[in-house]
Every structure is written in C-alpha cells, then in structure tokens.
Amino acid sequence: MGSALRNASELHPNETSHIIRFEDMIIAGKLMAMGILPHAQIEMVRRNALGQTLIYRINSRFKIALRKDEAQTIIIQGL
C-alpha cells in the first residue's frame, strides 16, 4: 500500500488486487450490474496474444473478458 494507484490493465498474470473505483461512469454502471464492484477482488488470469484482451477473475467466482481500454478505467490498489 501507499504507492500510486494502478489500473487493472497493469496487473500481471496471476496477480491479485482489489478494486478501488472506476473512472468511466458508463463502464462502471455496466461492470457493477455484472457483479464487479468497488472492494471486489480482481485477479488477472491472462492476456491474449496481442495484449489487447484481458481475462480477469472476480472474487474467485467468475471470469470476465475486458478490452484493454475498458480495463484501464478500473482503478486498483497499488503494490
């Protein structure tokens, strides 16, 4: 803790963190309806070959695929 906040696209595969807040309100609305809320645990599962699609696991319960620009709006706890 204490270090600068990061966004979810900066996670490394298999790294886990927690969501602090969302930058884009529209995306936030959609993510929240899908069960992705502030304080949720977020783990990066993998990136695709081009690094443009990112797969996350939320609360160890379900997986979701996000575009890189979508993931960048999710602010997570720093290192």
Binding site: I26, I27, K30, L31, M34, T53, I55, F62, K63, I64, A65, L66, R67, E70
Partner: peptide, 11 residues
C-alpha cells in the same frame, strides 16, 4: 451504440 466487450466467460 458504444461498443463494449465486457463479456462473462461462463463455466
């Protein structure tokens, strides 16, 4: 319509 991916990968 704005385009999104945001897709659940079901079990």
């Amino acid at each position: 319509d704005r385009s999104f991916l945001m897709m659940e990968l079901p079990i």
